[in-house]
């Protein structure tokens, strides 16, 4: 099953998990599963209209899914997705 890596700032909303193994044939299904398991993540990742918030960047390997097929990007069994935070500080 694909793995979704959770960045440090979001881990408190995912029971401290750094990665979540989630069934899904595409990014959308993986996110849906993850948000069902950890509903506190939802307001950080999704806007009111249930779209990914504009600053949320999900990477499949080295590529931002925005440059692929967005949340419809298909996934293989051993794919690793990363949610990348913005950079704080100076």
């Amino acid at each position: 099953m694909p793995i979704l890596k959770i960045p440090t700032p979001l881990r408190p909303y995912a029971d401290g998990q750094g990665s979540i193994t989630a069934p899904g044939k595409n990014v959308s299904e993986v996110l849906e599963f993850t948000l069902e398991q950890y509903p506190h993540l939802k307001k950080h990742l999704l806007s009111d209209d249930q779209q990914l918030r504009p600053f949320v960047n999900v990477f499949l390997g080295e590529e931002n899914i925005k440059e692929l097929q967005g949340i419809e990007t298909p996934l293989k069994e051993d794919d690793i997705l990363l949610i990348i935070p913005s950079i704080a500080g100076g």
Partner: peptide, 21 residues
């Protein structure tokens, strides 16, 4: 400050949940 730990405000820090300067 950003309103939450996970945000897109590059350069700013959510002090309560970060390493405090």
């Amino acid at each position: 400050q950003p309103d939450s730990p996970f945000n897109g405000l590059e350069g700013l820090k959510h002090i309560a949940t970060s390493l405090q300067p």
